[in-house]
């Protein structure tokens, strides 16, 4: 409708119509007359003129945009509310938290909640050490196995390659709950549940040194690297090994960073398995410590509990802010597989 050519054409026809109706006696139309005459453009659709229609459409567009923004802001507030509530609760006094009238800003800001939370039952330094050791070692191990396997699947040729790869992909359908029980028996048989810290570390790290999903992602990435590079390296007498580490790994660093961060976040958030294998308070990971530290029967110290929750949540959000691109791309690509 807004096309200027159609507008012009329509206006011309309007003029012709006017001419004809104004001078019914005359049989011919003087076209020059039409070109020069000043007539108001009135095109109608139904009973509303086009100008008006366009205005209405514009208003409608702005209105719908306002509605979209209103909806998004409303939903964003809902999404943010738990974060906000966590932070203000962590700064309130217990009486204020338990008061019948809820406040949306702490009356007295209790920074001491943080000091008390970290010095009490919630043994933050120990949990942090355990989580970092388990997270980093299992992530590095996963990166190594993933790089090797992805390289073999993307670059090397061997009998049964496709069969093995589809077998690997099929394992992604198996729920972790299928493995948990027998793996618990297995690590017990390995003697890793002997009550030592190293045993607990091994039990929490080794079973998670493989990720089929990440092998899949990295293989896709490796496959995009042009074949010519490989052949050139071969001509230069480079071995597969040097080619992998000097060419393929650097070229795939964005994917590797994504894997590293997602895996680290996974360790930070893992609860179920560590809860099973690390029953000694000194072996606990951060999430396990968080859940048990403040749940004394009856009256929970919500201020301290939320302070500890903030301490657990903030590193994740910081990681997200700094590596937003890698995290969102990694998660997105993992989803659009297949």
């Amino acid at each position: 409708m807004a096309n200027p050519v159609t507008k012009k054409l329509a206006s011309l026809w309007e003029k012709v119509d006017k001419k004809l109706s104004n001078q019914p006696s005359k049989g011919t139309i003087d076209t020059r007359d039409i070109e020069t005459e000043h007539l108001k453009l009135v095109i109608k659709e139904g009973t509303v003129s086009i100008d008006k229609l366009e205005k209405i459409q514009k208003v409608f567009k702005i209105l719908s945009l306002v509605l979209v923004y209103a909806f998004l802001v409303f939903m964003a507030l809902i999404v943010l509310l738990p974060f906000y509530w966590m932070i203000i609760t962590s700064l309130k006094t217990t009486t204020e938290i338990r008061a019948s009238t809820q406040t949306f800003w702490p009356k007295t800001v209790m920074w001491s909640n943080y000091a008390n939370a970290l010095s009490g039952n919630f043994n933050f330094p120990v949990y942090l050490r355990n989580t970092l050791v388990v997270g980093i070692v299992s992530t590095l191990g996963t990166l190594v196995t993933t790089i090797f396997a992805a390289f073999a699947f993307a670059r090397l040729n061997f009998k049964g390659k496709d069969l093995l790869f589809s077998l690997l992909l099929m394992t992604m359908m198996i729920p972790g709950e299928m493995m948990v029980i027998t793996n618990y028996i297995t690590v017990a048989n390995f003697g890793w549940l002997n009550g030592t810290l190293w045993g607990a570390y091994l039990a929490m790290i080794v079973p998670f040194w493989v990720s089929v999903l990440y092998i899949y992602l990295l293989r896709q990435n490796f496959k995009q690297i042009p074949n010519e590079l490989y052949l050139a390296a071969k001509v230069d007498g480079k071995s597969d090994w040097t080619y992998l580490w000097k060419v393929m790994v650097p070229l795939s660093s964005p994917t590797l960073i994504s894997i590293f961060i997602l895996k680290l976040m996974g360790a930070w958030n893992s609860y179920v398995w560590p809860n099973l294998v690390a029953d000694n308070p000194d072996f606990k990971l951060i999430t396990n410590g968080l859940r048990t530290a403040f749940s004394s029967e009856g009256n929970v110290e919500y201020g301290l509990q939320m302070a500890a929750t903030v301490v657990v949540t903030v590193p994740l959000l910081l990681l997200f802010i700094f590596f937003r691109k890698y995290i969102m791309r990694g998660v997105g690509r993992a989803g659009i597989k297949g």
Partner: peptide, 29 residues
């Protein structure tokens, strides 16, 4: 908006569950 809406993904299920427990408890929001 994209960043805000993605934030719940980078949280700890246990930790945020505890926040919801505070919101839903008898003296909660």
């Amino acid at each position: 908006f994209q960043t805000i809406f993605f934030m719940p993904y980078v949280t700890n299920a246990i930790a945020v569950g505890m926040v919801f427990a505070v919101i839903f408890n008898d003296n909660g929001l």
